[in-house]
């Protein structure tokens, strides 16, 4: 529809921008009123710990979406990150049990993940595939390869470092949380405070604009897939720590959670764009709500229903409040 923004209206972020976030927080307040154990330090810690893998992959996805534009079908998206994470976990676990030192295991996992990122980048920027399609196919392929590596078995890992990731505290804060916070901060620095990051955002915002500014569009977009693969690589260790081993089938759930959290996170931002903080916040809040309903005694079978309805409510409200504005 031909619509033209008028020159005189300037938009200032107002309260309607925060309606979706408010609803989310409202749900959390409701939970904490009904589940008295919900608002305890121990439980909050549990929520954060649970959300770490999702937070990491969401950060990676945010980078790709920022570089590719936020149209889900034609813009930037990387559905293969959870598969990369599982691959990272699988390679590491398999090699650890074979007796290799951790450093070598993670180097091999890193190499494998970078190959996935590079293939994604190649498919999208060289072959001209839509990211949705390329990364979905890669998801299938990488999971398949990982199943060959692990023979679809659950492998338990008891390496001190991996265990530390789960249970070690540093100055009263679990090591995993501290590390994830550090990683996310690093990614924030990369995306928002470097020329590389601004270039990435420029490419996502308007490809033509980036091109006429002399930016190497396809290289930047390609790099975003590498960043995503790196977050997948890191996430692999948290998966290992959480389950104390590599287990098949995690990737499907992780993928759905990742997409849910990232795009719900976009609804949190007053401008309705995918941002790093939005994605991270989305990941934490979605986990909080899952755990919250569980501690209220709601049957786990209902979780999917609640999550699905949350997307609907939050995204629809975001759409409506944008229209009203």
């Amino acid at each position: 529809m031909p619509s033209h923004s008028s020159a005189s209206v300037r938009f200032s972020p107002n309260l309607t921008g925060y309606i979706p976030l408010t609803i989310f927080l409202g749900v959390l307040v409701y939970i904490s009123l009904n589940a008295p154990n919900f608002v305890t330090m121990r439980n909050l810690e549990l929520v954060l710990m649970q959300s770490l893998p999702v937070v990491l992959v969401c950060a990676g996805l945010a980078a790709v979406v920022m570089a590719g534009g936020d149209d889900v079908v034609s813009g930037g998206i990387d559905l293969s990150i959870p598969a990369t994470a599982v691959l990272s976990a699988g390679v590491t676990a398999q090699m650890l049990t074979a007796g290799w030192p951790l450093a070598l295991c993670s180097a091999a996992a890193l190499a494998a993940c970078l190959v996935v990122g590079a293939v994604n980048a190649l498919l999208v920027t060289r072959m001209g595939m839509t990211p949705l399609l390329a990364t979905l196919a890669m998801f299938v392929a990488v999971v398949g390869v990982n199943n060959v590596i692990t023979e679809s078995r659950r492998i338990n890992v008891d390496h001190t470092w991996i265990v530390a990731l789960r249970s070690q505290d540093v100055v009263g804060v679990p090591l995993g949380i501290t590390l994830t916070a550090a990683i996310v901060t690093l990614i924030f620095f990369l995306l928002h405070l470097t020329r590389f990051g601004l270039g990435l955002q420029a490419v996502g915002g308007s490809r033509d604009a980036a091109e006429t500014s002399g930016l190497n569009v396809s290289r930047l977009f390609a790099m975003s897939f590498v960043v995503a693969a790196l977050t997948g690589f890191l996430c692999g260790f948290f998966l290992l720590a959480r389950g104390a081993g590599s287990s098949p089938g995690v990737q499907d759930n992780l993928m759905l959670e990742m997409v849910l959290a990232t795009f719900v996170g976009a609804a949190f931002s007053p401008r309705r764009v995918v941002t790093l903080w939005g994605a991270v916040l989305g990941a934490v809040l979605v986990t909080a709500i899952s755990i919250g309903f569980k501690s209220m005694g709601v049957n786990v079978f209902w979780t999917g229903l609640i999550k699905g309805s949350l997307i609907v409510v939050v995204v629809a409200l975001a759409a409506v409040s944008n229209r009203v504005r």
């Binding site: 889900v72 759905l256 997409v259 849910l260 609907v312 995204v315 759409a319």
Partner: peptide, 13 residues
Amino acid sequence: GISPFLATLSTFF
């Protein structure tokens, strides 16, 4: 007015 990807994803959930 939800985009088909997110709409059908929530239907899936």
